[in-house]
Design a protein around this nucleic acid. Structure first.
Length: 149
DNA sequence: ACAGGAGTCAAAG
DNA sequence: CTTTGACTCCTGT
């Protein structure tokens, strides 16, 4: 089960299994035929702030990386944390957090775009612009939700 | 063993 | 304000 949807200049590819475990998320230049999970589509349309029932293959992963992925998964929608903050919680260094983010197989599902550097936005593979766009989307959605109250 | 990374901080220019 | 260097620590080779 796989497919892609458009987001800015990229196509977001997603592959998941029959138990809604997401195995891979990638940012491609070309469209990939197929479908994507409803909540995934809703997320990019700014209609949901949670991606249930989707889970990442990284859930339950051992070691420091697993710990980091777990902590990052708990960052609330629309908020950010620094590499150092995550590092302190995981008992490691900021660069290791950067490494873990780079090797995250399932961005969006594990919201690595919410992890920024202490003096700016930090990096993002393959293009920092995607990170900016994702944070922008979440910020706008939160603002819209506030105005409803 | 060892180089290097999506970082951080303080010191120096 | 920008640049440099030391620091740290885990991972792949």
């Amino acid at each position: 089960m796989e497919g892609s949807l458009r987001f800015g200049l990229y196509h977001v590819y997603i592959r998941w299994n029959e138990r809604d475990i997401v195995e891979r998320v990638r940012f491609l230049k070309k469209e990939f035929p197929g479908n994507v999970p409803p909540s995934f589509r809703s997320y990019f349309a700014g209609k949901v702030t949670l991606l249930s029932p989707l889970l990442s293959v990284h859930v339950g992963q051992d070691g420091v990386f697993g710990q980091i992925y777990k902590i990052v998964s708990d960052i609330p929608y629309g908020e950010t944390r620094t590499y150092k903050e995550i590092a302190d919680l995981a008992g490691t260094g900021a660069r290791v957090v950067g490494m873990a983010m780079k090797r995250n197989l399932t961005p969006i599902i594990i919201p690595c775009h919410r992890v920024v550097s202490s003096d700016g936005i930090g990096g993002f593979t393959p293009d920092v612009q995607i990170k900016k766009d994702l944070l922008d989307l979440e910020k706008k959605v939160l603002k819209r939700l506030e105005n409803l109250n």
